[in-house]
Design a protein around this nucleic acid. Structure first.
Lengths: 350, 350
DNA sequence: TTGTAAGCGTTATCAA
DNA sequence: TTGATAACGCTTACAA
């Protein structure tokens, strides 16, 4: 890689002025004669001058870089979010560092440290857990941070998230209205904040409808198609604490998990929704076209991203101090993966 | 955001030595007394010292940052690729700047310039076109670059890509073997390299089978569900140069486009594969579970990402000079979105 | 209106 | 074995 040699000093020589004159001219400082300014600016263009943001950042502590740390870059759910983040950031002249924590706290720490080292001006993070040394570190180092997809406990922090309890309630109620009472929850990893909240919503909704909570009906697994298909296999082969005939419906923390059930349906030859009704969560691309179309709970992913980036930039640029917490509402999308067990059709209505 | 104040100088004061001693100690320079070294290192840990990579980069020209510029961050196709890139980069201690060009050359230029400004050590890019001032710039500035998903013409450059001509041939042949001769190509934007190559493959395969090329059967649209559904609408309402009864099958540049056809099938009430057979491209998540399961051509996305990152790091770290070009092979995945028009079943076999 | 000089946090060279 | 010092490219008082 070529050493970048078109610097202010270089331009100064070409222009026959001092380098600080060039610096001011490039920053359009009115103190510099308009002609000199124009001349230097066109010289800069001619030589393809790009300012060294590192040097700039070293002096002015502005790097125009924002770090985004998520749990799974590949998930369509997250990708819609950081698409939105990137768009807004880009528009305002910022660049985005993106890193993947893979649901692992150690890796998250590494990511945070690297980002700080890189001099990011702020961080948007979907933290692995809601309470961790990593979050304490962020607070202690006073890093501008916006949390997405969860709300760290203990300390009031900026965040944007969807009410997962409400989402669970939406999914569960729909199933219950359709006559299901034995409902399997295919949840994410146990320590995951969204898993915990979803589980809360699951329990609460069950209680609300006077349905006893059965902990065997709750399974924690990584959010992947494979892990889900394996879990279903264990159940169907009778290797699990719950048997295949002890539930008629499944709610999931993520559409990816729901797709895992579709995979299992292919492998183990059961029918959705005849054998099991399924309600997903997130409303990722393509769920509408699955066989059968997946009934799911929508998360406003684009709005999440825009909000997060907006809040962060506000703090950075206007050094806005107050706490901003945005809670977005989930929305039930009824499609065809739920079978009604209710005889009287009039009862089915929401 | 707190001013980062734990610097080498700060540690020097605490340790009661000169700052250059600290610098050497932190770099484990054997010239420094082992005890002093240990003492300073534990001090660094105690105060949570993180080196300022900007300053480091300014001196040593190493920023440990790699830029990744893609056309559409949201596309599941690309997200699998940069997941793989990020993993490998991360593992080697690098961070990844990620930006979205949105199939727009101007935005691509802006991204490139910003990345250079940010001092990235190399770039992985799926360029908007195969020949542009942007690419010339990259060459002129001697930026370490690996192109993915296409191969810039004119100049030998490092790249990793799937042979789109072969992919088109795979898709087309499968359709032709199943008795289709009037095959609509729902392509991406006309200037997009992959669109052009796919179109080449389409024409060649047609020629190979003695089927006349009809340019009305080729449509260029943005790679989105909406644009595709709109295009199908125009055709079906008789507003296009081709009518709905003049083709029996559709090949697409991307599974996202294929999903757009599924959307249109819902809106305009036609059947896949009875009305139209469909063959996608990419094999993105969930295509296996669509209704009907999508016959598509797989691209090895993870391998693309790994290769690209590997080649780039090789150039950077071992200043490997030679040109590396990796061509990956597409693979036909037969599922259920193609209807056979052939009577004699024995002819259907591939 | 332009130039000089100091400093941001490192690394690297040379001297002590 | 340690410490001064200069330099990376930029911003910003302050001086001319």
């Amino acid at each position: 890689m070529k050493q970048r040699n078109v610097t202010i000093k270089f331009l100064a020589e070409k222009a026959g002025v001092s380098f600080s004159t060039v610096a001011k001219a490039l920053n359009n400082d009115p103190a510099i004669n308009i002609n000199t300014r124009k001349r230097i600016q066109s010289l800069a263009k001619e030589y393809n001058y790009t300012p060294n943001i590192l040097a700039k950042g070293l002096r002015s502590r502005r790097t125009m870089a924002i770090g985004v740390i998520l749990n799974d870059l590949q998930s369509p759910f997250y990708s819609e979010i950081y698409k939105a983040i990137g768009d807004l950031l880009n528009q305002k002249g910022y660049t985005m560092f993106l890193a993947d924590s893979n649901y692992d706290e150690e890796r998250e720490l590494k990511n945070i440290l690297t980002m700080i080292s890189q001099g990011v001006e702020g961080l948007i993070i979907s933290s692995v857990s809601e309470e961790s040394a990593n979050i304490d570190l962020l607070i202690k180092e006073e890093v501008h941070t916006v949390f997405i997809d969860n709300l760290p406990t203990g300390c009031p922090l900026c965040c944007v998230y969807v009410d997962h309890e409400a989402a669970a309630a939406l999914a569960l109620s729909h199933l219950i209205k359709n006559g299901h009472t034995n409902i399997l929850l295919l949840n994410g990893p146990q320590n995951l904040p969204s898993s915990q909240r979803y589980l809360n919503g699951y329990k609460e909704t069950l209680a609300l409808h006077n349905i006893a909570y059965n902990e065997n009906l709750v399974k924690h697994n990584p959010i992947t198609i494979e892990a889900t298909a394996d879990q279903m296999g264990r159940i169907l082969r009778g290797e699990d604490s719950i048997k295949g005939d002890q539930f008629s419906a499944i709610v999931t923390l993520s559409d990816v998990i729901a797709i895992g059930i579709y995979e299992a349906a292919l492998t183990y030859n059961f029918s959705i929704p005849d054998t099991y009704s399924v309600v997903g969560y997130d409303n990722i691309l393509a769920t509408k076209y699955l066989n059968p179309p997946l009934t799911t709970v929508n998360q406003p992913k684009e709005r999440t991203g825009h909000h997060a980036a907006g809040i962060l930039l506000n703090r950075i640029e206007n050094s806005q101090k107050g706490l901003t917490q945005v809670i977005l509402n989930p929305e039930l999308l009824v499609r065809s993966s739920v079978k009604s067990l209710v005889k009287d059709k009039s009862l089915e209505k929401d």
